[in-house]
Design a protein around this nucleic acid. Sequence first.
RNA 1: GGGCCGGUAGCUCAGUGGAAGAGCACCUGACUUUUAAUCAGGGUGUCGCGGGUUCGAAUCCCGCCCGGCUCACCA
Length: 492
Amino acid sequence: MGKRLEIITQQRLEKVRKLRERGIDPYPNAYHRTHTAQEARSLFESGEADPASQVSIAGRVTALRHMGKATFLDLRDGSGKIQAYFNKTQIGPERHELVKDLDLGDFVGVQGVLFKTHTGEMTVNVSDFTILAKSLEPLPEKWHGLVDVEKRYRQRYLDLISNQSARDTFLARSRTISAIRRFLDGRGFIEVETPVLQQMAGGARARPFTTHHQALDEDFYLRIATELYLKRLIVGGFDKVYEIGRIFRNEGISTKHNPEFTTLESYEAYADYNDVMRMLEEMVAQTAQSVLGTTKVSYGDLTLDFAPPWKRITLRDAVLQTSGIDFEVSLKAGPESLRRVMQEKGLQLDDTMSPAYLFDKLVSTYVEPTLIQPTFLIDYPVETTPLAKTKSDNKAIVERFEAFAVGMEFANAFTELNDPEEQAARFTIQEEWRKQFGDEEAEQYQEDFIQAMEYGMPPTGGLGVGIDRLVMLFTNQQSIREVILFPQLKTA
RNA sequence: GGGCCGGUAGCUCAGUGGAAGAGCACCUGACUUUUAAUCAGGGUGUCGCGGGUUCGAAUCCCGCCCGGCUCACCA
């Protein structure tokens, strides 16, 4: 800590001491306000307020203008900002001394009548006030706000105090999640919670975090998806379930990846991936409408339109159009043939890449960059998706879609595989890849899950949505850290 | 993990070998309708950390830490 900062803090601690000496608690327990800043504003603008009626409002001092015997300060609460006016004649010389000791960042409660100044600013004419919390540290600068990205992430509260745009982004995030809940609740889905600590982490291709339970003396994984437990609930007879929750993947950190992130997963009995596609379109469009007031969303130089229907293209056609590779033809000649064709295109592949990796590579290299407007990529090779059901007329292709915008995947869904014998066979293939290719992210054989399938699961459409990424799209943010309040950073 | 860029006052930033700076914030004083208030005065610093080169280093070199972008990997 620099010496200047220490001096400022010392000065403010001295003010705290003086307040206590005068019998004033610098940190009282509560303050009962009658209005938020916004409510007071509406009350006044509506013209229905009795001009003599008192309001009390509380907030943080974000600007302070002393003018001799008069003082103006800006108070900000969760609803917005309002100006307060202190006049020495009105509050008395003794109280006026306290006003002079107020600092930027302090919390105060003010009581008085509302009026408009000569310059038209709605203001509380303060007759009484209460210090609610002294601030000991100087706030970031008022004009430029807090710019330092590292500080904005590590001390997000300063970002929120200083930058309206940060407040707007996280408010939009909150409203997005609320709107999604309303949408699903309105459709008869019930929200559930499933374990984060799992003996086997499944439902996605990813490396898990490990942890340890002391009393059981047993290692656990943090979940990488909510899928396998939610499907057990479909078996249990809840026809429509969803979970919005944190999942954890022990992988690289980037502008599009945080080690912990939030997904929505929903499962609907008697539905297939076509039903889910229609639902997702509607859900995202309604959510955008509700949060942003429009389905046309600015993103960088682009305008994304989430109004249904979104473009649909099969993975095969998309890969063919963008790379000239027809993987169905190649696959008929075996996975090695596909690897050879891809290598001929100049793709860097090594022998440890399982077929699932090969498709990932194809899609990420050729297809994803072309998917700007909201687009469904549909019908994936069975090798890529061990938990999805194949098409009734083509056992090589599963009924799966992923939704993209600006080249970024934000949803993944399929008609769920509910044949226990086939599921067992698919897990077995995954286990073989784990051995053959050293593919640590291959699904593990999950006996308990198979057993659930054996009791019978109805035809089911499942959906996963990356909430953080959806919020990025809605709030025009290029980095996932801008939509996560406390993103993962190295220890400073 | 690789490449590129960055870290100077509480905040936002100048400063590329020769006395550490500006604006805001802060402190002192003036000011009873200001609002990026104004006016007069005051600089409060481990130049990210550690070595090295040099008469002299914020500046040049080496190593390390943290961050941003990007590539790799993933969603």
